[in-house]
Nucleic acid binder design. Structure first.
Length: 624
RNA sequence: GCCAAUGUAGCUCAGCUGGUAGAGCAACGGUUUCGUAAACCGUAGGUCACCGGUUCAAAUCCGGUCAUUGGCUCCA
């Protein structure tokens, strides 16, 4: 009994099934019997086996197989949905049983069994009433809600594989053998329909590929990503930490991490000055009335650190820098002749993020924004945006991210500012994107309530995308703070204001950078650029001499003073991802040379120290 | 915040069904004097996240708290 239709636990409620069964045995190819549309029978699939399916179809089918396995192993489970995702699939279940990692293996085994059996995926259409009574009889409450979502007039279809039939639009592979290779990856909780007030379901994530080889490659990629995990590398390379005594989501930068950050910041500052920005410094806290005016207390109070009362006045740790920048603007009258103003600050802000969302450096409670505000006239806005885009691309190139994607986020339903201004702002964003020749996608309704924005995503060394830069129009704050400038007509006008962050948060960016370089920071950023390794204890003196000379050129250099052999020294330097090792012994001491070993190119042989310095200078200049 | 898992030496981890902790690396001391991916010997290091309970006895069982991890929700 290949189809298992007769023993259907919850589909078999109509005589039609019997009709189908008797016919299907004699029909090859597609069969249409009162709504049933069968696919080929398993024995006749020789041709179909060569058919390749869209990966997301295959994964969606894999999700059904997983659900089928779960239904069999844990009877009484209620099902929600099981779609394909970017790298795999999941299915949401509601069951008394709490899934454990061991269960994943059991379920996986069952799935493999079904794959071997080449069970067909069978589609059947129902009327709404039939579907409803079917789902009701099985107490599939979540499915009933999903059914109600299907618009009147749309087809209501079920797909069955093995013993499991699921309300589902499809499409699916023809039979389970085509699912290929499946791996279940993790268990997680997830709210029904993603709403916090709804019950929490158990979600199992997995992935599937047409072949085991592709699956293995994917799993290897996961392993590679794990090796690059900034939390692991941060510990291993002694870059940063958090402490229970300090508080979750608050980062302690260790000397080596701080060195890298300092290099990033210095570069950032120099480039900003070169590109017409000025720097501001503003306080970490401000009075409640400031946040009242800005609207933060109204919109984001829950996400702000609780106030501290000083002299009968509430002060809040800043969740944003903008109100302070606006206060600088408001410190005197402004003329159109001053505009545009481009004010930047590496401002550390504090946001009370919910405990469960914190993640290494990528999601924290205290972070430093590379924030800037551009205050300009409406006429200047387009060229200012274009300039920010050009500047961003340049910065990303310097940090080794040549591939950038842009997203234009437009007016959401709840928004401030007249639609005409939104229209105009969005138009200038598009014009700027086109002027810089940056391909972009439109994120309809994805803008902030106060204005449209462009988000940039960068692609790292192993192809992952990270959202970092954001360029946001703001119709809200200039109004709220009643910002004005005196124009040529002698009248007060409202300036345009743009928030923009390139690196985003320095903490987050540092995490991304660590993963991008797998901890092997390029010479210009590396906390320790050079390590001098004497081959014998007696050459430590010469090593010190070499180090001193490099240090006088502001090179970040250390000497491995361990009295041991050269092997372990090289091993340690490699472990610490030092870009250059200089091995020195009797030969080098005599000739005033260094034997250079590069992290990326291995042994380069002995060369005069001056030659090495030239090479190093070139690396730094080229940001290698 | 919600669901689940985890928390043992600086790091990576072992420690079964309860009988008051162990390895490797790192650190420190010594031996070795050595030329490109880890020499040898030794020493020290732990209120087993924290608090409470059960028990003659708790790293181990139970409850709570905190932190971390995988997700969900959120992300100005």
């Amino acid at each position: 009994m290949h189809l298992g239709v007769r023993s259907l636990p919850w589909l078999c409620f109509s005589l039609r099934l019997c009709v189908f069964c008797s016919h299907s045995s004699s029909i090859s190819g597609f069969a249409h019997i009162r709504g049933w549309r069968s696919l080929r029978r398993p024995g006749e699939l020789t041709m179909a086996e060569k058919v390749t399916f869209d990966l997301s179809t295959l994964r969606h089918s894999a999700a059904h197989l997983m659900a089928a396995a779960v239904q069999e192993l844990y009877p009484g489970t209620r099902f929600d949905i099981g779609p394909a995702t970017a790298d795999g699939f999941y299915y949401d279940f509601d069951t008394e049983h709490r899934f454990t990692p061991e269960d994943l293996e059991t379920i996986e085994k069952k799935i493999r069994g079904m794959i071997c059996q080449k069970l067909p995926f069978v589609r059947r259409e129902f009327t709404r009433a039939e579907a409803e009574s079917l789902l009701k009889s099985r107490a599939q409450t979540f499915k009933l809600e999903r059914l109600a979502d299907i618009p009147e007039g749309d087809a209501i279809s079920f797909y069955q594989v093995g013993e499991f039939a699921d309300l589902c639009r499809g499409p699916h592979v023809e039979h389970s053998g085509q699912v290929g290779a499946v791996k279940l990856l993790s268990i997680a909780g997830s709210y029904f329909r993603g709403k916090e007030t709804n019950p929490m379901l158990q979600r199992i994530y997995g992935t599937a590929f047409a072949t085991q080889k592709e699956l293995d490659a994917y799993l290897a990629a996961i392993e590679e990503a794990k090796k690059r995990d900034h939390r692991k590398l941060g510990k291993e390379l002694d870059l940063f930490s958090t402490s229970e005594n300090v508080g979750p989501g608050l980062i302690l930068w260790h000397p080596k991490g701080a060195r890298i950050r300092y290099n990033i910041e210095n570069f950032w500052r120099a480039e900003h000055y070169r590109n017409g920005y000025e720097m501001l410094f503003t306080p970490h806290v401000g009075k409640a009335n400031l946040w009242q005016t800005s609207g933060h207390l109204e919109f984001y109070k829950d996400a702000m650190y609780a106030p501290m009362e000083i002299e009968g006045c509430d002060y809040y740790a800043k969740p944003m820098n903008c109100p302070f920048h606006i206060e600088v603007y408001q410190s005197r009258n402004r003329s159109y002749r001053e505009l545009p103003l481009r004010w930047a600050e590496l401002g550390t802000v504090y946001r009370f993020e919910k405990g469960g969302v914190l993640h290494g450096l990528l999601r924290v409670r205290g972070f430093t924004q590379d924030d800037a505000h551009i205050i300009c006239t409406p006429e200047q806005i387009e060229s200012e945006i274009a300039e920010v885009l050009r500047f961003s691309l340049y910065i990303w190139k310097c940090f080794g991210f040549p591939e950038i994607k842009a997203y234009l986020a437009t007016r959401p339903e709840k928004a401030v500012g007249e639609p005409a201004r939104w229209e105009q702002a969005q138009k200038s964003l598009v014009a700027a994107l086109e002027k810089e020749g940056i391909p972009y996608e439109v994120d309809e309704g994805g803008g902030a309530f106060y204005g449209p924005k462009i988000d940039l995503k960068i692609k790292d060394a192993i192809g992952r995308e990270w959202q970092t830069s954001t360029i946001q129009f703001d119709f809200n704050l200039p109004e709220r703070f009643d910002m004005t400038y005196v124009a040529a007509d002698g009248l007060k006008h409202r300036p345009y204001m743009v928030h923009r962050a390139l690196l985003g948060s320095l903490e987050r960016f540092f995490g991304v950078l660590t993963e991008h370089y797998a901890g092997a920071f390029p010479v210009w950023l590396a906390p320790e650029q050079i390590r001098v390794l004497p081959v014998k204890e007696e050459f430590i003196a010469y090593a010190d001499q070499v180090a001193a000379e490099l240090r006088s050129d502001d090179v970040r250099v250390d000497v491995d003073r361990d009295p041991g052999t050269i092997g372990p020294k090289i091993s340690r330097a490699r472990r610490d991802r030092v870009p250059y090792m200089l091995v020195v012994g009797g030969r080098e001491a005599e000739s005033g040379t260094v034997a250079v070993r590069s992290r990326s190119d291995g042994e380069l042989g002995a060369m005069p120290l001056a030659d090495f310095k030239a090479r190093l200078a070139a690396d730094i200049r080229e940001k290698k």
